[in-house]
């Protein structure tokens, strides 16, 4: 695996696309700032490409463990009123959410 070649730094448009994927309504000023800063950070982190990693397995976790199970028994949930008290909006004993579908699908 080699270092990805970057003809130029992360563009403003790329940052805007990534911000949209990340659900961040960034401002124009932030786009300018982040494009520059993230370009510098990407140049730095791209150094991982220097490593010789033929036949090296990736480490996802420091402790090698898979499939940790617990007994399948019901446990009490958090009290509804306490959870709803922490929600930004509640109605009829439920969390109220903004609509998820447009007027015309």
């Amino acid at each position: 695996m080699s270092t990805p070649s970057r003809k130029d730094r992360l563009t403003r448009d790329e940052v805007a696309h990534l911000a949209h994927l990340s659900r961040l309504a960034v401002t124009e000023e932030e786009l300018d700032l982040f494009a520059g800063q993230l370009g510098a950070v990407l140049d730095a982190v791209a150094q991982v490409g220097k490593a010789e990693v033929a036949d090296v397995q990736p480490t996802t976790h420091a402790v090698p463990m898979t499939n940790v199970f617990r007994e399948d028994v019901a446990r009490p949930s958090l009290p509804r009123d306490v959870v709803l008290a922490g929600a930004p909006a509640a109605e009829d004993g439920r969390i109220r959410v903004p609509r998820i579908l447009g007027e015309e699908a």
Partner: peptide, 15 residues
């Protein structure tokens, strides 16, 4: 592969 995957392999080398 070039970024996250490669970083995880570097993690193996460090270990």
């Amino acid at each position: 592969d070039a970024y996250y995957g490669q970083a995880q392999k570097v993690r193996t080398l460090i270990t």
